[in-house]
Design a protein around this nucleic acid. Structure first.
Length: 482
RNA sequence: GGCGAAGUGGCCGAGUGGUUAGGCAGAGGUCUGCAAAACCUUCUACAGCGGUUCGAGUCCGCUCUUCGCCUCCA
């Protein structure tokens, strides 16, 4: 089976082949850096991380670009309001550059915890002003854009396909219910800004042929995507809420300049909701990642996200997270058992699970099914290990390799180190192993002497510190509980 | 008003014309000094009403409900 990807452009799953054999060019809309990342960011970037990992696993060289939006765009609508980054700078009593740098670092910190691999290129908008100006000049030259009082607008009437991604092709209908008052200086209500003249006191501004000002929001992705990946790219990812207007504007700008398709596959991931309502900063219900990570292993969050499909909404609740934590522990338990149990003579065939896993991933990155395959695998492996004959060294190696590939390298939900269930490096140290070995030995002696008060004390007190003792036929083992 | 998505068992969450999703929770059992872990067995479904079909959560129509976008947003 070959890889099929749901393309938002045609609203169907299409067979994926890159434009250039062996190489996939991929661009994903990055965050605007004026606050800490929340669960929504996690869902988006974990989802696309798995996409990249699967493409690479499938043998492609993936050139992955993910931008950082550090030009402050407006808090309100297209024409009013304060620039978000400047506003945050004012609130934190500092300047925009510090804000964007600080939150960029914070973003990567959180993504690192989630095992999200960094993009190959992470361009920032403020560093690509000349490229954006070039693009505007080209659009003016070709009659797709016009200047009014230092502002430059894209003329949607000059691009017949405007709105094809979101299905909003009738601009009069789109505007009839719009909640935003439209500036009269535009030729058409739907025209959008490519360059804005800076108002008095606006901090983030640059010189341009039209005014001292700043670029429109949609422009940066077009400019940077084409600069680093070429005029036509294979995959462009982003959140569903950006389909319109952001992505439709990107298409209009880019294709007007090049005359070529801008993106071959559009991928849109769905939202995180809290009690059924979209999570958003303005709604004050967003779940900050740094807060969650205080109580929950980041990989549990990653697992929680991958248990649903990227195109489905994901409803956040503490009970759902707890269920995920317990479930993930089960997979890790199997991983530990595979590493620790002595080989026997039985056989175990991992191949069918590999095949089912591949099929799931090839079907539009169906991670919920891929995860279900891991659970089925886990169940079968545990059963095999429980048999008297256990499984042979060869079978065990195969099973371990599958779990390592599928669970760690692709889904990124099981850790490399088997001894510690958490990503806490301190606890997984050799020293702890030594101490635990001693404690298990003492407990075994106590049990042998039927001193159950002592053996239970050891077990209970260790559990209080987050270490769980597991008695099996092969003797006791331990694991850090996440 | 326009564009779009969705309603699955106690909860989370796949599937999409005929055959078990999976996880969590619940029940019973094996194991255990007792537990936990592990293993085995097991209960509760496809919003409603029509239609197509030998057969429909799955296709079609209508109704109800929810959510997203049309303003910055992953």
């Amino acid at each position: 089976m070959s890889l099929f990807i749901y393309n938002s452009l045609g609203r169907t799953k299409e067979k994926f082949e890159p434009l250039n054999p062996g190489i996939v060019t991929m661009y994903v809309c990055g965050p605007t850096v004026y606050g800490h990342a929340h669960l929504g960011h996690a869902k988006s970037y974990v989802s696309f991380d798995v996409v990249v990992r699967w493409l690479r696993h499938s043998g492609y060289r993936v050139k992955y670009v993910q931008n950082i939006t550090d030009v402050g765009h407006l808090t309100d609508d297209a024409d009013e309001g304060e620039d978000k980054i400047s506003k945050q700078a004012r609130l934190e009593k500092t300047d925009p550059m510090e804000i964007s740098q600080f939150y960029t670092r914070s973003f990567y910190e959180d993504m690192d915890h989630l095992e999200v691999q960094r993009p190959n290129i992470a361009p920032n908008a403020a560093g690509h002003i000349p490229e954006q100006i070039d693009l505007i000049e080209e659009l003016i030259k070709t009659g797709h854009a016009y200047e009014v009082h230092g502002n430059v607008y894209f003329s949607v009437e000059s691009f017949p396909g405007y709105g094809k991604l979101s299905g909003r092709t009738d601009q009069d209908a789109v505007q009839s219910g719009a909640r935003v008052e439209v500036r009269s200086e535009k030729r058409h209500m739907s025209d959008f800004a490519l360059w804005k003249k800076a108002e008095e006191g606006h901090l983030m501004k640059w010189n341009s042929p039209w005014s001292i000002g700043y670029p429109g929001w949609h422009l940066e992705c077009s400019a940077m995507s084409m600069k680093y990946l070429g005029e036509t790219i294979d995959i462009h990812g982003g959140g569903m809420e950006n389909k319109f207007p952001h992505h439709d504007c990107e298409i209009a700008q880019s294709e007007s300049v090049t005359g070529k398709p801008y993106v071959r596959f559009w991928m849109h991931n769905n939202m995180v909701t809290v009690n059924g309502i979209k999570m958003g900063k303005s709604l004050k219900n967003s779940v900050n990642l740094k807060e969650i990570f205080k109580d929950i292993d980041p990989l549990v969050i990653r697992f929680f996200i991958l248990q649903s499909h990227y195109r489905s909404q994901l409803d956040y609740s503490e009970t759902a997270i707890k269920a995920s934590a317990t479930g993930l522990e089960k997979l890790r338990e199997t991983q530990r058992r595979l590493r620790e149990q002595n080989p026997g003579s039985g056989t175990f065939d991992s191949a069918p699970f590999m095949q089912r896993f591949r099929d799931a991933m090839d079907d539009d990155f169906n991670t919920p099914i891929a995860v279900a395959v891991l659970f089925d695998f886990s169940k079968s492996v545990n059963a095999a290990l429980d048999r008297v004959e256990s499984i042979s060294a060869t079978s065990r190696q195969e099973a371990e390799a599958f779990l390592d590939n599928a669970g760690r390298k692709i889904l990124g939900i099981v850790p490399e180190e088997s001894q510690s269930g958490s990503s806490d490096g301190e606890l997984s140290g050799k020293r702890l192993n030594g101490v635990m070995e001693l404690l298990l030995e003492l407990r075994a002696e106590a049990r042998k002497n039927k001193d159950f008060a002592l053996s239970d004390k050891l077990r209970d007190r260790l559990l209080e510190t987050g270490i769980e003792i597991k008695d099996t036929k092969e003797g006791a083992s331990w694991a850090v509980k996440s």
